[in-house]
């Protein structure tokens, strides 16, 4: 019973970030891979470094960027192509990613996430003996 309760509780926590992010914009990303790592770039204009929330829980990677809303100044928007909304996107990652070595940096509103592969998962050349 207690275990079940705990499970329900952890599930609630897991959901919390995605619940907060309801209605958020889905940022465009570039993801590419080489032998050493997987690299992700995400466009998050208006998100300062301190307002970025990155979470890894088991196999889920969550990106949540908070956008500071502009103060309500007098006047009107002639046009708005881009709403002032937060950003949210989540991905699942496999066992091959070394969770402890993931690093992130922000520059000009672009997030760069480096997900190194675990040593044992890197491609290896197998020597053939005669």
């Amino acid at each position: 019973m207690a275990a079940e309760k705990e499970k329900a509780l952890s599930k609630k926590e897991e959901r919390s970030l995605s619940e907060v992010a309801k209605g958020a914009l889905v940022p465009p990303v570039d993801i590419f891979e080489d032998d050493e790592q997987v690299i992700l770039f995400a466009d998050l204009p208006g998100v300062a470094k301190e307002n970025l929330n990155l979470q890894i829980d088991k196999d889920t990677l969550q990106i949540y960027g908070k956008v500071t809303k502009p103060s309500d100044e007098a006047g009107r928007y002639e046009y708005t192509e881009f709403p002032a909304k937060d950003f949210y996107r989540a991905f699942t990652i496999g066992e091959e990613i070394d969770r402890d070595k993931i690093s992130a940096s922000m520059s000009n509103g672009v997030l760069k996430l480096v997900l190194p592969k675990a040593e044992r998962m890197k491609p290896r050349k197998i020597e053939i003996k005669f």
């Binding site: 100044e73 006047g75 009107r76 928007y77 002639e78 046009y79 708005t80 192509e81 881009f82």
Partner: peptide, 12 residues
């Protein structure tokens, strides 16, 4: 989706 997106605000 045109890049870049633009917002124009006409203030006081």
């Amino acid at each position: 989706g045109t890049f870049p997106a633009v917002n124009l605000h006409d203030g006081k």
